[in-house]
């Protein structure tokens, strides 16, 4: 089995999905976006071990870049996406340069503050962002004759996005950079002794994570086509992204995707019962995971499989 078998199966199911269940496209887009955001978060949070609770800032940045460049500057969406990713990487670089001197929980606290400040800017700088009332995307240029407001187009874009993110993470699993990130996560001093520059590795992880999240933010912006700073920059979205990855399993290839499947489906199932209280399920699941399976669903499963394999190999 090649390391890409899982991804190939995922892609095949993804391509066939709209033909089988065309009524669930919006749900599927939400699921793909959360799977990819959580996977992108996991580059920094799981592989490099720096938990961020501010990733909504990157979602907002991506979404606002495409909205503003379409409505104010009449710029083509593909340029807007690239600019958004560039801005996100620049923001991650500046943000990380300032805050990576802080360790563990202190870094997490600083990410909340940075994201909140961006939210306040999005609400108050009306000349730029349309302020608290939000901003409409009413027209977009059509790349290769594709109508970006068509749900099916958005679905395939989201699918491509997820495949790209997971492909990058599969690269980390066996690649040099992946090993460097894990070394930094486990022990920065030892990593440094092995010739790794921990700050540079963390910064690169943060920039990759931020840029990939902003790419999803751009798709999300087109999907919503109406952006409100209260929704898109707010702490709950950051928390949702982080918890999806942690519940699924930090530092695993498929963990964040499995977390997204579990959480998006249960949110959908309980929608009528809980209405606005839909984050209740996140709270319950994260407590269960932290108390009983600290590696997350996928991490616990992998751990068990490895142990069983090892036990079998010693027996024979």
């Amino acid at each position: 089995m090649s390391k890409f078998t899982g991804l190939a199966i995922f892609l095949a199911v993804g391509i066939l999905f709209p033909l089988l269940l065309p009524g669930y496209l919006s749900l599927a887009i939400t699921l793909l976006l959360f799977a990819s955001w959580a996977s992108a978060w996991d580059v920094l949070g799981g592989w490099a071990g720096q938990s961020s609770l501010g990733h909504a800032a990157f979602v907002g940045l991506g979404a606002y870049t495409i909205a503003l460049s379409a409505t104010r500057f009449d710029l083509a969406p593909w340029w807007a996406v690239l600019i958004g990713m560039g801005l996100a990487a620049a923001l991650a670089w500046a943000w990380g340069s300032l805050t990576f001197g802080l360790r563990g929980p202190y870094f997490t606290l600083s990410t909340i503050a940075v994201a909140e400040i961006l939210r306040l800017i999005a609400i108050n700088e009306r000349w730029l962002t349309g302020g608290a009332q939000g901003i409409f995307i009413f027209s977009l240029r059509e790349p290769f004759g594709l109508d970006l407001f068509d749900r099916q187009t958005q679905y395939y874009l989201a699918l491509a996005y997820t495949v790209i993110v997971i492909r990058i993470i599969i690269g980390f699993a066996k690649g040099k950079f992946g090993y460097q990130m894990r070394a930094v996560r486990e022990d920065e001093a030892s990593a440094q002794a092995a010739g790794i520059n921990p700050t540079r590795v963390k910064l690169q992880a943060f920039m990759i994570s931020g840029a990939l999240t902003a790419l999803g933010g751009a798709i999300y912006g087109v999907f919503l086509s109406f952006l409100e700073p209260h929704d898109i920059f707010f702490l709950p979205l950051s928390v949702q992204i982080a918890l999806t990855a942690i519940i699924g399993g930090r530092g695993t290839i498929w963990g964040p995707t499995i977390g997204a499947v579990l959480l998006v489906f249960s949110a959908e199932l309980f929608r009528n019962i809980f209405a606005q209280a839909n984050l209740l399920i996140y709270g319950v699941l994260i407590l269960v995971v932290i108390l009983f399976m600290p590696r997350g669903l996928m991490g616990q499963l992998e751990h068990r499989i490895i142990r069983r394999r090892y036990a079998r190999s010693t027996r024979s």
């Binding site: 928390v239 918890l243 984050l279 209740l280 709270g283 407590l287």
Partner: peptide, 12 residues
């Protein structure tokens, strides 16, 4: 993370 989970449960 455990207190974050507690926060979500209390809020909701």
């Amino acid at each position: 993370l455990a207190t974050l989970g507690l926060a979500l449960i209390l809020q909701n």
